[in-house]
Simulated assay, not measured.
Amino acid sequence: MANKKTLIAIVGPTAVGKTAMAISLAQHFKTEIISADSRQFYKEMSIGTAKPNSDELIAVKHHFIDSHGITQDYSAGDFEREALLKLEELFQRHDVVILVGGSGLFVRALCEGLDDLPKAGDEVRERLNTEMAKFGLEVMKERLKSIDPVYFQNADIDNPQRVVRALEVFEATGNPMSFYHKKDVEKRPFDILTIGLNMDRTLLYERINLRVDMMMDAGLLDEVTALLPFRTKPALLTVGYAELFDYLDGKLSLEEAVDKIKQNSRRYAKRQITWFKKYGNTHWFHPSELSEIIKFVHTSIEKAS
């Protein structure tokens, strides 16, 4: 009987070193990578999303990088369907495939499945995105709290995309998002091994601050300026883009905007760590422990087979 296929999910906070680890593991197992970063799908968003660079993309074949345009709406459910099809194809050539990303909802979509949530019309989504850009996250969070306190307590409500999506579901159906979060975990036809990367919080925050400075040096402001016509798109209501839109609107100085990107990135990293510590059976390592991770993966695969 053929060995069962294994998906190795590399998760953890922003700037911890997930991309480098995924590439190292993919090279070791002679396989390919699926990205589960919800912003790296978009061709127009590169600097602010810390996409793998050209050398990294050449080193190992990546999927779901630059796969969509910013005008396309792309949900976690869409990713689940397309990534499962891609995995079916990849597992014909490889026993192991690497999944990498810090977007917890997209990782969960592929590994566990999501409820088939209803969608509102385009006009509802556009209006809610415009209101988010106009009134800000805090106002929209209060609106969500009033209609769905259960979801508000359990979701990543500091993520504008999650808040807009929950409000959209309510407007489309009259039911809160929490009404639909009842489905059992989908059993996948492959094993899933989740590796979490983490490090000392002080060092992680230093890495985040340095990454933001490097993004600014690489031309992040020009990238954001070019995206002004699309600023209400959900992917752009996020860290690194929202703050620079505020600068371009004259609400912040450039120095204040950069400081806010660093602050919000650190907060996002903290939320990611919390999410993945609650998520499934995650095995945690320091990013420097490549040999230990490889040994652990081989042992786990042998036990499962």
Rank of each mutant, 00 (worst) to 15 (best):
E168H: 05
V169Y: 01
E171D: 00
E171P: 00
E171F: 03
T173A: 09
M177R: 11
S178C: 07
F179L: 03
K182P: 00
V185Y: 10
V185D: 12
E186K: 14
K187T: 14
K187D: 13
F190P: 06
F190Y: 15
D191H: 10
D191C: 13
L193D: 04
T194G: 07
I195T: 13
G196E: 04
L197V: 01
L197S: 11
N198G: 12
D200V: 10
T202F: 11
L203R: 13
L203A: 14
L203E: 14
L203Q: 13
L204S: 13
Y205T: 10
Y205M: 13
E206N: 10
E206R: 14
E206K: 15
L210E: 13
R211Q: 10
R211G: 06
V212I: 15
D213C: 06
M215C: 03
M216S: 09
M216H: 15
D217M: 09
A218K: 09
G219D: 08
G219P: 05
G219A: 02
G219L: 03
D222F: 05
D222P: 07
T225M: 12
A226V: 01
L227F: 12
L227P: 03
L227E: 01
L228E: 14
P229I: 11
P229E: 10
F230W: 09
R231I: 01
T232Q: 13
K233C: 07
K233Y: 08
K233R: 15
L237G: 09
T238Y: 00
V239T: 07
Y241S: 02
A242L: 12
E243G: 04
L244Q: 02
L244R: 08
D246M: 02
Y247A: 04
D249Q: 14
G250Y: 11
K251H: 12
K251R: 11
L252C: 01
L252H: 06
S253F: 08
S253E: 08
